[in-house]
Computed example of a mutant assay.
Amino acid sequence: MGEQAADGLSMTDAEIAAHDDQRDIGESGWSSLRALYAEEFEGTVLDAGGGTGIYASALDAAGLDVVLADVDERMLAAARGRDMPAHRVVQADVTALPFADASFDGAHVAHVLHVVEDWRRAIGEVARVVRPGGTVLVALGGTNQPGPVLEEISARVDEEVGGTETITRGQASGLNGPEEADHAFALSGMDVVAVRRIEGVQRRALGQLIDRMLVNPYRSTASRAVRAQAAERMSTWALDRFGSLARVIDVPVGIDYRIYRRRT
């Protein structure tokens, strides 16, 4: 998940926190996710592009031996802060993984390939390091499933930071289509065997949601300066529109996993 911020600078602590908050799937969601991991994986699992370790922690809680690889040192520092052993946190580009062929029983790739320009090579690398018969779980998109309130706020945020001129990084560079993913994995010796959806609920104040959208650098290519200016306008608009930034809403969230198996 790691990558530089839109300004070309390393991500700040606030940006990392917003990034992780975006990935939160609530208590019931995490429970379901741990169960999925325990069902589909065994042994040693590579969390490729694992960022701050938010999913690696769930993999570990499912009883798996996890190695996290990511390119961004700030995110890796956050992962180490989750008490992951240093030798299990590796700085590496997902397009050039420093592991031997068939060295993992499985791999987890969540919300990564949409920000990797050379995503075909990344898929080849992930497939290469998984043993025959091993499993790869891939989540292509984001987690939020916006209701009317969140959709209105999201549209307003996009307008304030420049509209369609600041398209998301996923739309700008990486993989978003499941058909393309299936084809690339098939060429790398892996076949899709199932699709599983994990659902949960976030409870967030409107002010928290707005801050998260504006701080998270993966949302758009707008600079930090532009996003900071937009924050002031958004606060004024939201207070006028909703009366309070403290209003709490339920945000349905979900992760669609495509499950691939390495041919034997």
Rank of each mutant, 00 (worst) to 15 (best):
Met1Glu: 09
Ala6Thr: 02
Asp7Met: 06
Leu9Phe: 13
Met11Ala: 15
Thr12Val: 06
Asp13Glu: 11
Ala17Ser: 12
Asp20Ser: 08
Arg23Gln: 10
Ser28His: 13
Ser32Cys: 08
Leu33Gln: 00
Arg34Tyr: 02
Arg34Cys: 07
Ala35Arg: 07
Tyr37Gly: 01
Tyr37Trp: 09
Ala38Ile: 01
Ala38Val: 01
Thr52Ser: 10
Thr52Asn: 05
Ser57Gln: 12
Ser57Ala: 14
Leu76Gln: 03
Arg82Met: 07
Gln91Glu: 10
Thr95Pro: 00
Ala96Leu: 11
Ala96Ser: 11
Phe104Asp: 04
Ala107Val: 07
His108Tyr: 11
Val112Gln: 03
Ile123Gly: 11
Gly124Asn: 03
Ala127Asp: 04
Arg128Asn: 02
Pro132Cys: 01
Gly133Asp: 02
Val136Met: 04
Val136Asn: 02
Gly142Trp: 10
Thr143Lys: 03
Gln145Ala: 13
Gln145Trp: 13
Gly147Val: 05
Gly147Ile: 05
Glu152Gln: 14
Glu152Ala: 12
Ser154Asp: 14
Ala155Phe: 08
Val157Thr: 06
Glu159Cys: 08
Val161Arg: 02
Glu165Ile: 01
Thr168Trp: 12
Ser173Arg: 15
Gly174Val: 05
Gly177Pro: 13
His183Ile: 12
Phe185Ser: 06
Gly189Asp: 05
Gly189Val: 01
Asp191Glu: 13
Arg197His: 00
Ile198Ala: 00
Val201Lys: 09
Arg203Ser: 12
Leu206Val: 00
Gln208Leu: 13
Asp211Asn: 10
Leu214Cys: 02
Tyr218Glu: 13
Arg219Cys: 12
Ser220Ala: 12
Ala225Thr: 14
Arg227Thr: 05
Ala228Ser: 13
Gln229Ser: 15
Ala231Val: 05
Arg233Cys: 06
Ser244Ala: 08
Ala246Ser: 15
Ala246Ile: 02
Ile249Ser: 08
Gly254Ser: 10
Asp256Cys: 04
Arg261Leu: 06
Arg262Ile: 03
